[in-house]
Design a binder for these strands. Structure first.
Lengths: 342, 342
DNA sequence: CTGAAAGCGCTAACAC
DNA sequence: GTGTTAGCGCTTTCAG
């Protein structure tokens, strides 16, 4: 690998000049051409490590997701595209919904000197986040909030999303509406539960604790809890499930128990995947604006990296949409193919 | 941020000593303790960039996947876990099945000076791969091979996988068996097609070009081609679909056309996802040993990074397994829950 | 407009 | 066992 020195020597200029050419600074046209030619000739590529050491910039940004499932990876994809466009590359790593692991990953990213970070926090406490901000590393929270912390974040209105889901069920005439909640230590989980409760309040309906369950967002928990619910003496007529993995688990349970949807129990899930459309029956679901989430987050982060803190702390609250399908509507029929978003 | 110099000064030793302590080299116990105490006191963290500049090692490895779908992300997860264990971190990026983009990502990783790379090539030609190897950057090919190239790779026996699938169909008594192939410029696509053809040869059955289609691995192509097939005057009785995204597309088409599986047409797909189990009906599929693929690849790469080239070039060929479900067997009934692998 | 030179923070000979 | 010192490859004053 040739270095800037080799280029300088071969071109008969100083390393400073070569550096200037590389960085697009003012250099006499003639000199510039000579340098560029030599660079090509030697196949020279600037050493990013050396450059980073000097400039304190790595042009890398980190993204910590709880898991590598569709929802977060779709976001990762749009984030990566946008950031690539700005000349940054993305390091994605997963926390496994585990605050300790999350902290470890963030620490790793910090040591790698990323210029900024996107994180989906696995807990609503603990604020190493502010520490990063203090250290001058911009961080954008995605999807979930951390309490008592003022920082940039891109969120979805989960209360409203859940509300729509449950209200739809009520409108459809379902009475005993159960819920499989996600992790309450995380704002999405808590907010969706809140949305569920609020419908009952607004409609002045009684709440039955028996059919309210708490899972951990995993497929397994969805499976177990759905089995529990449907084994009740008086099982729910409809169930709202607070995320996509639990919905998958719940559907597996239903399949296994030979229960008819929506005749025996209506289902409304959260998040949209191919599965929602292909499952038997296709699922009514609250769908989140994945592309927008990614765009807002990537652009906001870029703005911060560029030093523009003008509207800090900025909070985006995007709206989710209810998509009705057969799992809450026996008469439903797919007439148009819904295109794959990813 | 304190530097090694600050620590040295405060502890009253030389930077060399501090460095030795950090790197676990022999230092008098007394001195070591003093240094460690100062490190803690100052909250010192070694600057990885500086270290990399000096040692020429970044302790980072790159992974280029065609997409962020379940199959590759499951592999990424096991790879990341293993590599993390060895003190390496993983940068995953996607090529979008596009050779140019792939080249760009590999170039980016090279400039980031990764210590090694895992790549799922998007084409069976073009060998910048060897260039990397020559440059001393170990590369392991995953899932797909590059022709005329001798290098480490972890593959699945696709010919055999497809063979099992189609043979199963024949055993079940299906006669007109169609296929939706993947990209033939990629070894998995080509091999699976080869497996399909070989069954016909072995069983001395006629091949009908009409029901052989070529997609590009995408959901869209699966959708379109399945529609084409089923709109034929004489549609196939069974279809083998060469990857999971196309299977999804095909199932969407089937749903839309109101075709019964397996009564009107039997389906066997490739790769296992929750969808295979939840779709209507659950899908017979060739499942690849995801965990093993990741383990073999990560460990082999680590070995290479450590300078052990003993068995180079090593080629692993793992076996795929056929899992039979209702899409080829009307009598099938799920009795045990198949646990989520990821 | 260009060059000389001083580091960025760390490691690794090489001395002592 | 520990210190001195010369870089790793680049950017960036500061002179000229």
């Amino acid at each position: 690998m040739p270095t800037i020195k080799d280029v300088a020597a071969k071109a008969g200029v100083s390393t400073a000049t070569v550096s200037r050419v590389i960085n697009g600074e003012k250099v006499r046209e003639e000199t510039k051409e000579k340098v560029i030619k030599t660079i090509k000739l030697l196949g020279y590529r600037p050493n990013q490590i050396a450059r980073s050491l000097k400039t304190q910039k790595t042009h890398t940004i980190g993204f910590v997701v709880p898991d590598y499932g569709q929802f977060f990876m779709q976001i990762a994809k749009v984030v990566e595209d946008i950031l690539n466009g700005y000349g940054y590359s993305l390091v994605v790593c997963y926390s496994d919904e585990n605050p300790d692991r999350e902290k470890a990953r963030i620490r790793m990213l910090t040591e790698k000197q990323v210029d900024g970070m996107l994180v989906v926090p696995t807990s609503d406490e603990d604020n190493y986040i502010m520490e990063l901000n203090k250290r001058g590393i911009p961080v954008i929270l995605i999807d979930r909030m951390v309490k008592d912390i003022q920082t940039d974040c891109v969120l979805v209105d989960n209360v409203n999303g859940a509300y729509q889901a449950v209200e739809h069920l009520i409108t459809k005439g379902y009475q005993r509406i159960g819920v499989i909640n996600g992790r309450q230590e995380v704002t999405t989980g808590e907010e969706r539960y809140r949305g569920y409760l609020r419908v009952f309040e607004d409609y002045n309906l009684p709440i039955d604790r028996d059919i309210i369950r708490f899972g951990d967002f995993s497929t397994e928990s969805g499976y177990t809890l759905m089995k529990e619910l449907m084994s009740l003496q008086n099982p729910p007529e409809a169930v709202f499930i607070a995320n996509c993995y639990m919905t998958i688990g719940a559907m597996l349970a239903i399949k296994e128990m030979d229960i008819k949807v929506p005749e025996d129990v209506a289902i409304v899930g959260f998040d949209d995947t191919e599965l929602t459309r292909l499952s038997d029956p296709p699922l009514t679901a609250v769908v989140q604006p994945v592309r927008e989430i990614g765009e807002m987050a990537a652009n906001l982060l870029y703005k911060r990296i560029c030093g523009d803190m003008s509207d800090y702390p900025k909070m985006y609250r995007l709206k989710a949409t209810l998509v009705v399908r057969a799992s809450t509507d026996p008469g439903w029929k797919a007439d148009i193919i819904e295109k794959k978003g990813a």
